[in-house]
Design a protein around this nucleic acid. Structure first.
Lengths: 144, 144
DNA sequence: CTTAAATAGGATAAAACTATCCGAAATAAT
DNA sequence: ATTATTTCGGATAGTTTTATCCTATTTAAG
């Protein structure tokens, strides 16, 4: 469904949000360990998220990544997916046609529209706060 | 959502079904042209579908690909996807966790279960006959 | 029998994605 | 100032996916 990069990006964002609530800035090394991802590759993805202003970074000793507390609830899963995988998941045709719309549909157009709309609405209504709180309360997990 | 190979495989299967209704066997060259896919790559995918007994092939002059008429309505999209992309689309975790179930869910487990189940049921209830008839009646299109 | 037309299948190449390495720049603490 | 820590960014490598090429095999027609 999503690329590996996107999976890491979502998990990293959740872990950063989780710690930002406690005013704790987290390092790349800690993030990669806690979400079980390759460090250097995760660094690239975090840089991407920083450029897209979804997370903040602070260089140097005692630096790391953080998200401003008052932003956590406003960050939707859709923004993270969009920053990393682009918006193909919303617009692309299920069978790869260049043009695929109601006037010129691919064979599975209607079926896909339904599922894509649900996926889209799920991504747009799920925010980092919900996800981070579930981790905090032990309801869900970021690894193993 | 699906791999390129799977997109080509679905479109090719529809085109073959469409022609098998008229008792017409179609060649790789014709298929690739009509679904706008790279010929040699499409050949590999068709071989795969033949090995999975989803389509039949006949070698030699006047050979080509076909599907037995009485099978067309019984072939579900899910079989084609499964033959080409495997069943990861059903079982894998949305965030790539090795273990992700009700007892140990990833942060988006519940949200994904819902969407995946709809995708699954869509693939299992959509068959080649429906799709081929829509192409025949000009309701949907296989290219451009 | 020969030829032309097809699929089958192995080898290879190109592109995209995933992952690693290393030096540069920034920053806090000593 | 120096040092240790940390992100940034470019270069490179490995892996998977996508795509191509070429030869062998099969088959119908002439």
């Amino acid at each position: 469904m999503f690329s590996k990069a996107c999976e890491y990006g979502i998990k990293a964002s959740i872990y950063i949000a989780l710690n930002s609530y406690d005013g704790k800035r987290v390092s790349l090394k800690e993030i990669a360990k806690e979400i079980n991802s390759p460090e250097a590759f995760t660094a690239k993805i975090l840089q991407d998220l920083v450029r897209n202003k979804i997370i903040n970074s602070v260089k140097g000793a005692y630096g790391g990544f953080e998200i401003e507390k008052h932003n956590i609830a406003a960050i939707k899963l859709s923004q993270i997916v969009n920053a990393i995988d682009g918006d193909g998941i919303y617009h692309g045709c299920g069978l790869g046609l260049d043009v695929c719309d109601a006037n010129h549909p691919c064979p599975v157009h209607d079926q896909f529209i339904t599922i894509r709309n649900e996926l889209k609405s799920m991504l747009e209504t799920t925010n980092l706060e919900q996800l981070a709180l579930d981790i905090k309360s032990g309801v869900s997990f970021l690894k193993i």
